[in-house]
């Protein structure tokens, strides 16, 4: 969910904005290590992909209700945690500025939750599960499902943390209630997110396993890419 203006107070929002900027700077450095001078075009296309997928609403039930993918875990699986976080963050910035999704003053909070916390939680789980589970489509699918589900819930708990620090309305003892409600709602959202993430990643891994970052990075024997890697002048 996007946090809109006024839910969290100004100082906490400012602290998280600074935090998000620092973390993103680090992501840029690590992203350059992954992609070198391909970073801008590749991350741009992946960000366009995440944005496009978020725009593809799919009806959950025949009437009315529809959902869309958040894509943090998917990005982490496909392009790695650094580029993934960067892409989700750019999507959030553009959505806030161009479409008014989520308050501009809350941008730091939204980036922290969805781009940083969500992706980090997903990737930690991916790194763990891919080592434990068998290297089969099922293993990859389960990894993707669990990490996507957990990442959505973790991102929602980021909001709870921020609310505890700087919520504009005192909820007293109900903060635990807020945490529970958020976790419950996002557990449901996370199941859909997990199913789609798992099917998507398994589809990609069948056709081009070399494009799945998680499979590449977490396995020492790297298969040669089918597409020539361009050598720039450097």
């Amino acid at each position: 969910m996007h946090i809109s203006n006024g839910i969290i107070d100004g100082p906490v929002a400012a602290v998280f904005a600074a935090l998000a900027l620092a973390a993103l700077t680090f992501c840029v450095l690590r992203g350059r290590r992954d992609l070198d001078d391909r970073l801008a075009p590749m991350a741009g296309l992946v960000a366009a992909f995440i944005f496009a997928v978020q725009m593809l609403n799919f009806p959950i039930f025949t009437a009315g209700v529809s959902g869309h993918l958040l894509g943090g875990a998917l990005a982490a699986l496909l392009v790695g945690p650094w580029v993934g976080a960067l892409c989700v963050a750019v999507v959030l910035v553009v959505q806030a500025l161009v479409f008014g999704d989520g308050g501009v003053a809350m941008l730091g909070l939204n980036i922290t939750n969805m781009a940083l916390l969500g992706t980090a939680a997903a990737y930690l789980l991916i790194a763990l599960l891919l080592r434990v589970l068998p290297r089969t489509p099922t293993g990859l699918g389960v990894t993707a499902f669990v990490s996507a589900l957990v990442s959505v819930v973790v991102a929602s708990q980021g909001f709870v943390l921020q609310y505890w620090l700087g919520g504009t309305t005192d909820l007293g003892g109900n903060l635990a209630g807020l945490a529970g409600t958020m976790a419950g709602v996002h557990l449901l959202i996370g199941i859909g997110e997990g199913l789609i993430t798992a099917t998507t990643v398994v589809t990609v891994a069948k056709v081009r396993p070399d494009l799945v970052y998680a499979l590449r990075a977490l396995k020492p024997a790297v298969p040669a890419p089918a597409v020539p890697v361009a050598g720039g002048a450097r």
């Binding site: 296309l45 009806p59 099917t199 589809t203 597409v227």
Partner: peptide, 27 residues
């Protein structure tokens, strides 16, 4: 309904492949 999920996700996978490969060509 829910059984569109497989088709939807397969479409998302195909879209990623296209996006990634286009990124490589653009580069």
């Amino acid at each position: 309904f829910l059984w569109q999920l497989r088709g939807f996700a397969a479409g998302v996978g195909a879209l990623f492949l296209r996006a990634f490969e286009r990124g490589e060509r653009v580069y």
